[in-house]
Design a protein around this nucleic acid. Sequence first.
DNA 1: CACGGCTCTCGACAAAAGTCAAATTTACAT
DNA 2: ATGTAAATTTGACTTTTGTCGAGAGCCGTG
Lengths: 321, 321
Amino acid sequence: MAIRPAEQLIHKAAWLYYAHGLRQDEVANQLNISRASVAMYLRKARETGIVNISTSTQLFTDDVMARKVEDAFGLDAVWIAPENAYLADPSTDIAVLAASVFLELVKKGDRIGVAWGRTVYTIADIMSFADLQDVTVVQLCGNLGAPYSYRPDQCTMEIARRLNAKGLNFYAPLVLSTEGLAKSLRGEPVIRDQLAGIADCDLALYSVGAVDADSHLVKCGALSPAEMEALRSQGAAGVIAGQIIDARGEVLDCSYNRRVISAELASLRAIEKRLMVVQEDTKFEPLLAAIAGGLCTHLVVGAHMAERLLQHAGAAIKKAS
Amino acid sequence: MAIRPAEQLIHKAAWLYYAHGLRQDEVANQLNISRASVAMYLRKARETGIVNISTSTQLFTDDVMARKVEDAFGLDAVWIAPENAYLADPSTDIAVLAASVFLELVKKGDRIGVAWGRTVYTIADIMSFADLQDVTVVQLCGNLGAPYSYRPDQCTMEIARRLNAKGLNFYAPLVLSTEGLAKSLRGEPVIRDQLAGIADCDLALYSVGAVDADSHLVKCGALSPAEMEALRSQGAAGVIAGQIIDARGEVLDCSYNRRVISAELASLRAIEKRLMVVQEDTKFEPLLAAIAGGLCTHLVVGAHMAERLLQHAGAAIKKAS
DNA sequence: CACGGCTCTCGACAAAAGTCAAATTTACAT
DNA sequence: ATGTAAATTTGACTTTTGTCGAGAGCCGTG
């Protein structure tokens, strides 16, 4: 950390204010500094995670719909963000909820796998700071060197920063031009270790991508729109940690996937808590695929998506009977 | 819980304010209520534990002295409240710290054993509310029916209330007049179950009492000052959960102990995290006894007490060499 | 159906917290 | 030693929050 005396002061101010319930001016003359400084220290304390303000996410799981989705898909826990009921921008609401849920799921000493995407980055961005000890955040997939603001390593690093945790980045590109090169790279000790460490995670945070021209994979140049379309007709249903999955949630057998450096789905499934967050309603099928593939134990979605999931489950039951 | 609509509103207000960072007036017209109501809801949210504000207790463990005490006595974690550096009343500071530490140690689904005493009651009294799910608070010792404000069952209940947890009380007196009656009572199914359940706790919270006329045991009439003095000369060194222990931290072999209904020390030792809090400097020897008996893995004390502990440890080492 | 007693809500005021530009200190390179 | 840039601190100001008594709505009861 930075300078000791400052840290110490922040901590003392936070302690007197939040734990003992003194007023700012009382804290100020306890510590012989101005009230303005106290206010500043307190802000820093909040930003650093020395004090933690968290709101229970109970309400969002207590929902009957959430329970139904849990039952219908065999998930451990589901949170539903009530759409447009609260705020102008519903996707922000989902991200805020996801961040809270995420912070609730993280424990001291945990190892956390983080994938990549707009959703994950949004979450990282609005997530409040926490002072977890002994936490490691590992990147689940290789990097996309695109001129993009949310790169995989940025997601990892930002979340690590907010948790006061150690960030373990992947020093490899997400996609290589030949299968052979990808294979060799995967064999490299540095990369190999990183990949092997993924199954040891306690918690994973990711979203699922759609298989269309709007996908990051296309925008970052990993695949052309035409290639994406081709994959789609080959059965591609979604994107997880940079890999293409089919409707059953298995890795699609295609050249692209063989050229990717990313967590194996088996490793992901080995992670105890897999938190999946889906913001866009268009990602219905990708989400179904991810759930089918057992890539998600904890789910955060909007109300609309939850309804579609339930409709789908209902239809499936009818069809079966 | 109480009425649903009110709960719902509190939750929504808390969510918008704390998670989304809106101002109170913004929340107010989102929910179409007055700002004053919002302020009120937010207070309730804090009081209910729907929002949690916690300050890291890091600083108090980071202390070099804390580390030394940990090493010298083989404890898992030690927190030291800097005496008089902060506030007028140092004992409050210890209690506030203890409450924070306690809340940090509690996990969802835990079973918590709580003993009895002024210290424990003070902690219960200043502890902030939390919305833990699935937590059970069990009483570690029988009741003292004295006209006292902090009775064992009150400690248990108050803590349970603050945690939104289930409280399991002991429906038996702490001390009986004959050994035979105590034995029979211990055999009663209700009591037997309660006693058996203690070893299953994940966390215990207690203090240690001194063997003198100021002890609660004397004040509540369980023992006369003369009896206390006699026990002292027989080797009594402290009081844990209503039982008299000797300097090694074992149950003293005496009639009083055989007439007591309380957790067996073996059960207490079976609890993973044993948080002991000592406020008074006079409880030095009782604390040593408790530590010697392995009744404490996590310790919260004042700076002065910590120094005495270290001195003692230093002296013991010198003597040995 | 009128009546206390009850809780809930709001407006207005008081208190507290946040903010910002200027002043002061500190750190460091010259 | 000395000037300069960066960081810290502060007083004065604004905005936000807390509080309290008055009034409105609600219910069971006589």
